[in-house]
């Protein structure tokens, strides 16, 4: 599967915030996805902007993690795309 280049959140998911993490639940698919704090931030930025812009936004906010964030953003987007929780804009 190709990594979405302009990822956008898919419809139909219930969001259950639990502290700084998130549970995405799709009732029709009876599918739940665990999101740690970083994945929750990435999910929130999946609004159709380019994947590079998501990374740049997070690097600006967390410069100490600049070395690892690009791979983490890509891996999270790929994981969410595999669940069909995000789609290409």
């Amino acid at each position: 599967m190709d990594t979405p280049q302009r990822p956008n959140r898919a419809e139909g998911y219930n969001l259950e915030p639990l502290d700084d993490e998130l549970l995405l639940y799709h009732p029709a698919r009876t599918q739940a996805i665990y999101m740690n704090a970083t994945a929750t931030l990435i999910w929130g930025l999946c609004d159709g902007r380019p994947i590079e812009a998501i990374t740049e936004t997070l690097v600006a906010a967390y410069p100490d993690a600049a070395a690892t964030l690009p791979a983490e953003v890509r891996a999270t987007v790929e994981k969410l795309a595999a669940f069909a929780a995000i789609v290409e804009s």
Partner: peptide, 22 residues
């Protein structure tokens, strides 16, 4: 974490289909 616990509980829920919002 709470989210990990919720996911693990959902995975072991056997009557989800009978409950509101599963």
């Amino acid at each position: 974490t709470k989210a990990e616990a919720a996911l693990a509980l959902l995975a072991n829920l056997v009557n989800a289909r009978n409950l509101p919002e599963h």
